[in-house]
Amino acid sequence: MSVLVFAENSEGRFKKAAFEGVAFASAIAGGSVTAVVMGNMDATQVAELGKFGASKVLHYSDASFNAMDAGVFAQVISDAASKVGAQWVIVSNTYTGKAVAPRVAVRLNAAFAPGIIALPEGNTVKRSVFSNKGFADFSLNQSVKVVSLTPNSYSFAEGSGTATVESCSFSPAGNRVTVKEVKKAAGKVPLTEAEVVVSGGRGLKGPENWHLIENLADTLNAATACSKPVSDVHWRPHSEHVGQTGITIKPNLYIACGISGAIQHLAGVSSSKVIVAINTDKEAPFFKAADYGVVGDVFDVLPRLNEAIKAFKNS
């Protein structure tokens, strides 16, 4: 089966989600796949995709593809999909992927499923719906199928394959979006792709106490997140707000500190693999959604947890 995967890079480096997408695509294909890479990138880096199951990479290396324009990216990806006669097109469900994938699906007359969380079974794919309060199996009823994969959904390993890189060019049609200014967020690890997330709620009492969250996040190489009221009062930037009206995340480990566990908050985090809740109130709703609970004061527990993890990492 012919499968095409769009491997996203950020400033010339692949994200983990790109490797995950290639490995996932290769599992669907039952063998090697073709990957699309856009924008400036070092050729040896591009060839890295071979280790995850790509035998061929179509590199559209024009510098104008460094900035994301969904309409333009969709034209390039569908051009590549037509070239290889792809029956499945795989995109990561990142901000870029979310903007691009529906347009690719329209261009290819394809059936589309956003944010799937497991390998397809035949024509059926699984994704979470109703803000993580349920799952749905969707059947994709077109001969071409486009899916975006939720990061951290598929476990994969690095292999030893190699990919040939073909340099491609493409002149997009239509009106374009131009990037004027980039404002990078403070956190080092992007929240949507983080494997570990440390999150704080109103129980932290104020922004001056966030070093407790940040120190633990540093030790764990984790991203930081927060509840809605915390970003509403600007203790933390809005980009950290998780939940039904914020970002949905799916890390391996979510540590909720001083967060009550309201249904709207859980909607954004409940598909985390493992949840630890720390709360002074043993009746806090978060304990119903958590795997491990600590009934205690964050001011007391967080420094101790941080020390315990440091000790573990050094052992």
């Binding site: 394809a110 009823n141 795997d291 609970g293 600590v294």
Partner: peptide, 22 residues
């Protein structure tokens, strides 16, 4: 119509929280 819901599922219930001494 290009897609169809074959089936919904409720999330698997959590096994229950394990409390740890602070």
């Amino acid at each position: 119509k290009r897609t169809e819901v074959a089936q919904f599922q409720a999330p698997a219930p959590k096994a229950g929280v394990k409390f740890i001494d602070p």
